[in-house]
């Protein structure tokens, strides 16, 4: 066990964690934030995407102990007091959600993009989402939803 201190969705936390636990399992099992999904467990699908110090990363490819001193965001950061984030609203509006399994990862990749680049081109959106696989939608609706959410360049 090791004690780590980190920020999760804006709140500072200190926890004991097993050195051999992946960040994904820590988020789901210890923090009980089950929005983050496990698809492949090895970097191929993007379902486990979270934001670490402002960058989209796979939580399945990290040890939980690595987040000591870091800022972590999971999909739960997005809605506030029952109000959806603009990205979430646009995903619904554009039918960019079917089974929904890829959606938390897609949202986190899109959020990381818009936070660092509020006016992305379609190509930049595609690059940001290239690591997120969706078996249902065919991607078109997802890209449209992100473009639409970015309109005005004021994502926060």
């Amino acid at each position: 066990m090791k004690t780590i201190t980190f920020t999760i969705n804006g709140e500072k936390e200190t926890r004991d964690v097993s050195e051999s636990k992946t960040l994904l399992n820590f988020i789901r099992e210890d923090l009980h934030l089950t929005g983050t999904k496990e698809g492949c467990g090895e970097g191929e699908c993007g379902a486990c995407t979270i934001i670490l110090n402002g960058k989209a990363v796979h939580s399945c490819m990290m040890l939980a102990v690595e987040i000591d001193g870091c800022d972590v965001e999971t999909v739960e950061v997005m809605s506030k007091d029952g109000n959806l984030d603009i990205l979430q609203e646009k995903f619904i509006e554009h039918n960019a959600v079917q089974c929904g399994f890829c959606t938390p990862g897609m949202l986190m990749s899109a959020r990381a993009l818009l936070l660092s680049n509020p006016n992305p081109t379609v190509d930049e959106i595609k690059t940001a989402l290239e690591g997120n696989i969706c078996r249902c939608t065919g991607y078109k609706q997802i890209i449209e939803a992100v473009s639409d959410a970015a309109k005005g360049g004021k994502y926060e």
């Binding site: 670490l52 990749s109 989402l129 690591g131």
Partner: peptide, 9 residues
């Protein structure tokens, strides 16, 4: 290499 997430790590 890989994807945005892979290249960020």
């Amino acid at each position: 290499i890989g994807s945005t997430q892979i290249r960020n790590r």
